[in-house]
């Protein structure tokens, strides 16, 4: 089920970590194209760079910069989201990209303990420029409520994250990722911290979202979970290979 216009294109991404004098090359010219509406699973050994890839694609981190070299293929790679070059965005552009273009789901949920379920889910809608966010407060609140209702959390809106089960927390996190209506969902081992049954429920949610046309890039190291996706890619030696 491939379409002709890829929504997310990563071209020859390199990412190297420096630990003192030791350099750890994690990604070496890794490339990937994700079609609109596609569900791609990323597998690989622990430490192979799956999270690193997702962070780069989500605009949380930048690929290597090599001083003096300006040609794209020599810089540490490029990422394009639709027609935007993410790797060329400034700080403000990156913030907008994180808030509106992609939604992130983490293995450990990463909810804010002081906020209620509803407030957590509304968070990305509130981070934008203040006046607009105020104007849209009611709209984003309604959106967050709708999402939480849909994920079976309608009766938990006023609860704190520590009063929820792992599955409920992850569903709240998914609602948060979707509240600004992003076109791509980036999920880093979303079931990694859950038992099989609860993990299954989360995958069911993801499958539904996929059915509605959302583009999904999901990291997992479980091949049975990966098999639910349209396509599986593997990271090995810093490169992405088809499975």
């Amino acid at each position: 089920m491939s379409s002709s216009t890829p929504i997310l294109v990563a071209n020859r991404l390199s990412k190297t970590y420096h630990m003192g004098r030791v350099t750890v090359p994690v990604l070496r010219e890794a490339s990937i194209e994700v079609e609109r509406g596609e569900w791609v699973a990323v597998v690989g050994l622990s430490g192979s760079g799956k999270s690193t890839l997702l962070h780069l694609l989500g605009g949380l981190d930048r690929p290597d910069r090599q001083p003096g070299r300006t040609a794209p293929n020599q810089r540490g790679g490029t990422i394009h989201f639709e027609s935007t070059c993410v790797t060329d965005l400034g700080a403000a552009g990156l913030n907008r990209y994180r808030a509106h273009s992609v939604g992130f789901v983490f293995q450990f949920y990463h909810l804010l303990p002081e906020l209620t379920v509803l407030e957590n889910a509304m968070l990305p809608a509130m981070t934008g420029r203040t006046p607009l966010a105020w104007l849209n407060a009611d709209a984003s609140r309604a959106k967050a409520k709708r999402l939480l209702d849909r994920f079976g959390l309608g009766h938990r809106l006023k609860h704190r994250p520590n009063e929820l089960s792992g599955g409920e927390r992850q569903r709240t996190a998914i609602a948060r990722a979707l509240v600004n209506g992003p076109k791509v969902l980036l999920a880093d081992e979303p079931t990694g911290n859950l038992d099989a049954k609860t993990g299954g429920e989360i995958l069911e949610v993801i499958r539904e979202l996929h059915g509605e046309g959302l583009t999904i890039l999901m990291v997992t190291h479980d091949s049975s979970i990966a098999s639910m996706a349209d396509r599986v890619v593997r990271i090995a030696d810093g490169r992405i290979v088809a499975e």
């Binding site: 700080a91 992130f104 981070t127 948060r176």
Partner: peptide
């Protein structure tokens, strides 16, 4: 980090 990941600026 979470706030930054959902679009909060510095």
């Amino acid at each position: 980090g979470v706030l930054r990941s959902v679009g909060a600026s510095r």
